[in-house]
Amino acid sequence: HHRAAMGPEEFISRIMEAEPPDIYLMEDLKKPFTETSMMMSLTNLADKELVLMISWAKKIPGFLELSLSDQIHLLKCCWLEILMLGLIWRSVDHPGKLIFSPDFKLNREEGQCVEGIMEIFDMLLAATSRFRELKLRREEYVCLKAMILLNSNLCSSSPQTSEELESRSKLLRLLDSVIDSLVWAISKLGLTTQQQTLRLGHLTMLLSHIRHVSNKGMDHLCTMKRKNVVLVYDLLLEMLDANTSSG
């Protein structure tokens, strides 16, 4: 009920406040990387970021009002997309580099030491360039991230019980709030109505690219884990197993 009274400005301000702090890898990086050392650094960082991602999701107005099962399903469907959008945002002002954290920055070429990762790095760099061209604003970025989370599991099996139906309807209302907020953020940029519509289209279309890279990244991580290149543990393992077992 309180959400009905919350306008886009307040919604954006709440999700801006929910933004996680910078996360540091805090490891002595021994260069040149080996396949294992790079994969271990990437997965260690992802594991730390995942813990803060749960905290972030909980601060999105209305998220905790969804059923616990919806909360779990949404997070397990989108975690890598969220990590990738964060990476893109950190890297947007650093052409040719991927800023995984303030103390873990990689050039495209450094991806050579991990089999199959260069292709993923290139897709991430291409998405970053596109966001750079569009001059993505922080307000828009936080809306896109919330959109990824709330949209991640929308086309799965239809709700059966009344609790599931109620949660589903709350989820749809929440998505409306996020879309309203993104539209509002775009409206503040001094564009014509047509330019605003086009910008909304371009930004949301980029989300399908991020979903695609995330799927590639998921396959890659599963391969690395299967080949014992990297040990995956803790929350990341739980999320990954969740992902592989659900197909």
Partner: peptide, 24 residues
């Protein structure tokens, strides 16, 4: 396996009222 058992850490972090930063 129930969702709760399958996603023990995730479940715990979602339900816990203390900051996950502390748990990390």
């Amino acid at each position: 396996t129930s969702l709760k058992e399958k996603h023990k850490i995730l479940h715990q972090l979602l339900q816990n009222s203390t900051s996950p930063v502390d748990l990390a």
